[in-house]
Structures are given as structure tokens and as C-alpha cells.
């Protein structure tokens, strides 16, 4: 217990791959082993990786849908309140509130809040913004936004065992496996 490194808590094992096919086959093996706290990091979305990882369909759509719905009815309610309830403006004998004349604005409000719902919903589901991450300290991992592919199995996965997991990752064909600390 001389060096500070001895006190570090392991974050997980990181395995590097050179090709999308390589990382995808590795992901299939890790999925079949039953790991739950693990991830694949790629420079671009790899087609078919969600299946290879066993991920379910993303839930972002619910955020979009409910925000859009609120936008539409919020828009209608706003116009009714402003032009018919709070201060009626009679124009040419037309009704003070009509869903037809109000539609364009309510439609734009649907899209506006649906768009905010999609972006903020995506960020919420991804727990972003996160301005610190153990992997972002690792220089080798910096190539994840360039041309390298990584499988990371976290140390707090119930099936994690440093030796066994390292063996598994080696079997998947990774050339570089490294322990990343918190």
C-alpha cells in the first residue's frame, strides 16, 4: 500500500477492437454470458448492435408523444383562453374560438414541444450531460470517437470477476484489454 494507485476502485474492463464486425461478435458473446452492466462504445451507431447487445426498443418515443400532446392541447387552450375567455375579440361575427383557425398555431406548438421532448428525453434516458466519466480519462479510449471500438464490462456487474471476465474478452478476439479505474 505504497502508491496511490492501490487505493483506486476499478470501474471495469475495457477491450479494444478494430472493426465493427469484431466488436459485434464480442457483444453477442458478452450478451450470451448474461452480463447486465456493460456497454459497447463505437464512433458511429453500428447497425444491428442493439440486437447484438440484447437492447429493447428505445423509450424516447413516449417523451415525444406526451410532449407533443401537451403542446397541441396547450396551444388550443392558450388560444381559447386569450381570444375567447379572458378577452374575447369578436371579428366579423365569427366565433371567438374555433379549432380550425387555431389549428396552425396548435400544430406548431405540437412540433415545438415534441422536439424538446425528443431531445431532452434522449438526454434524460442517457443520463446526459455527464461531465465526468472514468473512461474519458483513458487516453486509449479517446479513439472511440475516431476509429476504434470498445466493449466495457463494469466491475459492479454481478457476474464480474476480473480474471474470468478478462479471459472471456480475450476469447472474443480483443488485442488490448485494460482495467480502467474510477
Amino acid at each position: 500500500m505504497d502508491s496511490l494507485d492501490d487505493y483506486q476502485i476499478p470501474y471495469g474492463l475495457m477491450a479494444e477492437f478494430d472493426t465493427p464486425a469484431g466488436v459485434m461478435h464480442a457483444a453477442e458473446k458478452v450478451r450470451d454470458e448474461g452480463f447486465t452492466r456493460w456497454d459497447v462504445h463505437t464512433p458511429f451507431p453500428v447497425h444491428g448492435m442493439d440486437d447484438a447487445m440484447g437492447l429493447k426498443n428505445s423509450q424516447v418515443g413516449w417523451f415525444t408523444f406526451f410532449c407533443g400532446l401537451c403542446g397541441f392541447f396547450g396551444g388550443m387552450l392558450m388560444i381559447w383562453y386569450m381570444n375567447a375567455y379572458d378577452y374575447g375579440i369578436p371579428v366579423g361575427g365569427k366565433p371567438n374560438f374555433s379549432p380550425f383557425a387555431s389549428f396552425p398555431v396548435a400544430y406548431e406548438m405540437t412540433i415545438l414541444s415534441g422536439a424538446f421532448g425528443s431531445l431532452l428525453g434522449m438526454l434524460y434516458l442517457n443520463r446526459l450531460p455527464r461531465l465526468h466519466h472514468p473512461l474519458l480519462k483513458n487516453m486509449r479510449f479517446a479513439d472511440v470517437t475516431h476509429d476504434k471500438f470498445f466493449v466495457v464490462i463494469e466491475a459492479d456487474d454481478p457476474k464480474y470477476d476480473e480474471e474470468e471476465t478478462r479471459k472471456l474478452l480475450k476469447k472474443t478476439g480483443s488485442k488490448h484489454i485494460e482495467l480502467v479505474n474510477e
Binding site: D39, L55, Q59, G114, S118, L135, V144
Partner: peptide, 21 residues
């Protein structure tokens, strides 16, 4: 970049949000 790590769990939500947008 909000701490983006290229995680596939993130890409999955990201692509869905991109499609919805």
C-alpha cells in the same frame, strides 16, 4: 458534447430521437 462516450446504449436512444426529430 455533454460527456458523450459513443456508448451503444446512448446511440440507441440517440438514433431514435434523431428519427423522431
Amino acid at each position: 458534447s455533454l460527456g458523450w462516450t459513443g456508448s451503444n446504449r446512448h446511440w440507441s436512444n440517440y438514433e431514435k430521437a434523431y428519427l423522431l426529430l
